[in-house]
Design a protein around this nucleic acid. Sequence first.
DNA 1: GTGAAAGCGCTAACAA
DNA 2: TTGTTAGCGCTTTCAC
Lengths: 339, 339
Amino acid sequence: MVSIEDVARRAGVSPITASRVVRNQTNVAPATRERVLRAAAELNYIPNAVARGLRQARSGLLALIITDITSPFFADVARGAEDAAREAGVKLILGNSYDDPAFEADYLRSFGEHRVDGIVLVPTDHAGKTLRDGLPKKMPIVLLDRGVEGAAVDLVRCDTSAGTQTLCRHLLDLGHQRIAMVGGVASYPTWHERVSGYAAALSNAGLPLDQDLIVAGDYKADGGVAATRQLMALPAPPDAIVAANAQTVLGVLDELVRLRCRVPEDISVAAIDDPLPPSTFWARLTVIAQPGYEMGRAAIDLLFARLGDGSDRPVQELVFAANLLVGVSCGEGIGKRVI
Amino acid sequence: MVSIEDVARRAGVSPITASRVVRNQTNVAPATRERVLRAAAELNYIPNAVARGLRQARSGLLALIITDITSPFFADVARGAEDAAREAGVKLILGNSYDDPAFEADYLRSFGEHRVDGIVLVPTDHAGKTLRDGLPKKMPIVLLDRGVEGAAVDLVRCDTSAGTQTLCRHLLDLGHQRIAMVGGVASYPTWHERVSGYAAALSNAGLPLDQDLIVAGDYKADGGVAATRQLMALPAPPDAIVAANAQTVLGVLDELVRLRCRVPEDISVAAIDDPLPPSTFWARLTVIAQPGYEMGRAAIDLLFARLGDGSDRPVQELVFAANLLVGVSCGEGIGKRVI
DNA sequence: GTGAAAGCGCTAACAA
DNA sequence: TTGTTAGCGCTTTCAC
């Protein structure tokens, strides 16, 4: 492997001069710069970012820990984060925690060892024990999607409480009376937010809160299937189902097909967190869309802000709004069937 | 930042002994090991993987360059790759090329500088110029999804030619006569494979090849929309449309809704490369599914094989089969509507 | 079983 | 504008 010393020798300069050229510093004579660049090209020199990272105590790497990259919302987050990282000339390491605190802890420790310059984390261990152990002090962290108890850390999240309320009011305006809320993980703050928005909408409409219509799940399709089966077996089934995320709604729709329920004739369906653009087929579902891409970008930007002036700036919470995308799955478009 | 020297000092041993303990080497007396471990714990020592990487000339990082993480197929690939990397104790850097050779080249160069131990690449520059420049010699590369002209490099791909043929035979068996093939990028080998499978199926059935029914696109929803509009305006429109990938089929369905065509009553729709499990709503579309997760895993495994015995083993091509998942979007289930 | 010396490749800090 | 020295934190080599 050719090093900067080889380049320097060939150009007849000292290593530090060659280094200055490689790093595009200004205080180098044009002729010298020229010679160094030629030498580097002839030798096919490739700077060693590992050595540079060791010397400068900056690796040029950031890490992103999400629950699952195949979730459309987190894929969007990852794309936003990666775009922002690229624009800053930094690389992004990806980790899936699969909602497992042990995986999360392993990744945090491991990324600490790799001395990444910062971490964006979608926390799974909400107690935050892993957050304090096994990480180098002063390693900047930005939480995404949900917070951690007692952690004084920056947070980027979406106000799904307000979003869910908007969505439910939309359903109420369309005349629905028995709206069900399904699919989130009972121990996650994001589920509580959604339920609270749901409850607020019903309360504002003067409707009672029926606990039978609130069914937690796993933020996956299976939870949607189970919840739907349970709901449709009730003496008084719901006339609308709000799914807590994109995967859940797949399960809901799947089970409704199995039960031979038509959407929206027999029952309405809406969802939270569909990240697909309105122009696609999916927008035919009425959804509250979280701006995953922008959230990913914002998280990386916050990380850089921390890297800049150190840890003395106050902890920040960035709250995005969820947008209502009206489709036809709740009876909005007369005569158009979804399933 | 506490270093291994600090740990050694506190434990009253030399740095190298502390290093041996940290790396779990065997030739250390139990009592010594104990002392070192305690010292490390007390100081909250976190090994520096950057320094280790410099010394050992192995960074413990792999890179994955795909076109877009929000594509369901590549998200699946990424998940498989990451799982395999995790099991091997290695981290994964992610890069989106967005089908732009300039981005691809930037990432290749940059990952070379970071001295990643290997790269899995979904190539966008099929001429392969970027593949030879700007990369450290002997940096192992595995291509995924598609090859590069004249590159003697390992390749993991899926036989979508055979898969498409199977899918088209399925359509022919159901009585369809005018099958359209839409959506792939004209310059990509993956599109040619799919078209060749399509042509083979028609030829075997003794049907003529109508060029009007083959419409290239961009592997995105827009291409599906445009192709569908064009096809349905033909004097003799198709009775079935095969979309080249998951995004394309979204556009196809969207446009069919706009044209008030029902699926499958008025027209059948099928797709290649849907990665969702058969239990979900989407399986109601008839698809040929590429095993993205397994392909991602296989690519990482191939990389490790190269890392092991060097570059002397012969170049390998790993071909996965695409599996037909029968849904109801081509008239298989009587009376069930898709859209 | 343990340690001393050296160096991986690079760049701050300090000369000149 | 250029160079010298030193050291980032670790582990290989060799010696004891």
